[in-house]
Design a protein around this nucleic acid. Structure first.
Lengths: 134, 134
DNA sequence: CGGGATCCGTCACGATACTG
DNA sequence: CAGTATCGTGACGGATCCCG
């Protein structure tokens, strides 16, 4: 329970002391989209609707906790749908909603940029590192 | 020193256990871009080059620690430049590099999507919340 | 003074174990 | 198979101090 509550109170706190957020509510959404796991999950689900275990393997680095937590948050925001098929092994399938699917072009744009400029970033990175010794 | 080291070891650890990352190095970049503060700072710096204190006020919710840390990471990746003008009060100005400026269209796309679909997300959110009671 | 490093408390995260 | 509960670590925010 502490998980979502914590995220919530951070958002609330921000709204309280950050006028910039208040006059531009899209910051909340940008925060949600700018989540590491959200972007990965959206891309994963873009290929096809997938089950919990599939996503767990597809994204690989994610823990069950964060997978559940992120999936819940995305479901709450209407980005993904959660379909439970009651069977002997319970089957839960996650899929992108039309709303979530609308994020795909944006995600693809990010991926494209990353692919195109990866080497430049790597160069800058090693450059910076060599300048700082360690 | 623990700051950059931490970010480093996370990246290293990921490369070690995540095969999906290995075959698609753009994931590292997506991680960097998908950072909450990075996106806000890019947007802030897009308007104009700004000093440390300006950014601190502009982004508001950010702590000095995270501001410095994120700025360093972005500088390392060649997204921003750090110019120190030696004067009585030291003047440090941060600006987007051409590489970082290339991220602007993507960021603007995200912002546009957020603006366009904000109400839908909010609706889904309250819908979900009312279904869950608390 | 402005820029930033350091210390500390807290909370979010990751790994593991357990349940329906 | 899909999740929840528990626990340890470390990342983050806040305050303080330092340096040019």
């Amino acid at each position: 329970m502490a998980t979502r509550t914590a995220a919530q109170q951070r958002a609330d706190a921000k709204l309280a002391y950050d006028a910039y957020v208040a006059e531009c509510p899209t910051r909340q959404l940008l925060d949600r989209i700018s989540d590491k796991w959200v972007s990965l999950l959206i891309n994963a689900l873009a290929e096809q609707p997938q089950r919990y275990g599939d996503l767990s393997r597809r994204v690989a680095g994610i823990s069950q906790k964060m997978l559940t937590q992120t999936l819940r948050a995305m479901e709450r925001d209407g980005l993904v749908s959660r379909t439970v098929t009651l069977a002997v092994p319970v089957r839960v399938e996650y899929a992108l909603t039309p709303l979530g699917r609308g994020l795909l072009p944006v995600m693809r744009a990010i991926m494209s940029w990353a692919e195109a400029n990866m080497d430049e970033v790597l160069a800058a990175r090693s450059d910076y590192d060599s300048a700082n010794g360690t």
